[in-house]
Amino acid sequence: MYITVDNQNTFVATGGKPFNPNLPTVVLLHGSGTDHRGWALQARWFAFHGYSVFAPDMPAHSLSAGEALTSIEAMGAWLVRALDAAKVSNVHLIGHSQGFLVALEAAVLLSKRLLSVTAMATASAIPVNPALIETAQKDPALAAQMMLQWGFGNQHQYGASAVPGMQPIGIGQRIMANNPLAIDLAACNAYTAGSKRAQQLASEGCASCVILAAQDRMTPKKEGFKLAQDLGTHAQVIADTGHMLPMEAPKQSLSIMKTFIQTLEK
């Protein structure tokens, strides 16, 4: 669906069903330079099993208009405005990589509307090599290739795909090369409040879940374990996958996500 946020046309994937703001809403937040399509399979499951799905393309990403936001804090505030525009009440926030940093910022603003947070292949801080940011500014396609070569785990480097016949590296490359990757990476690099925000959520009793990838070379799992500690929870690690976890292991990641959220609903 398209909604208007800050006077800009904004695309929000709803998992193939009309959006119903009165259902518990699963918010799926994409990582740097990517878009809602990284969640295609998980989104459909939630949408067809009693939840509403809200998976936005951040401003200037893929199907959404507007200017790219330059800080994680601004992205978190934007997300809350987007949820307000769609009249969403209660939310489970799920974020991949940068998307979880955005979730942390939004979570603090959402207060009692927040039901849970789920972190996927991420950390409380995501420092980015300045050379990569510079490459993303000059040649986004090349930077996307560098990230995908680093980001996908071993099996996907050898052509594995959760969806028969598809090439996740090729799909990711096309999406990332056309999105404001450099701005996203710079925003990640500058963000330092993650650990404090996570500890704040833990102190407020927010339910949380952390899903890590065994072969993650972008946000190494030791950093993910620290995040889990900050959130006051234990991390679960999916074997044989890299940083692009939502695309690499949609079935396994969905299994953990839905078990966590369904347990809370009970």
């Binding site: 399979l41 067809f48 594995a160 795909s161 028969p164 016949g165 090439q167 079935k251």
Partner: peptide, 27 residues
């Protein structure tokens, strides 16, 4: 059936051996 999960249903649509050829040719 509802494309909530990747995988094989019936070999008219997809098949694991055929999928390897597809992925190699796409690559």
């Amino acid at each position: 059936f509802n494309v909530e999960q990747g995988g094989h249903i019936y070999s008219r649509i997809t098949n694991p051996t055929v999928a390897v050829l597809e992925q190699r040719l796409a690559a």
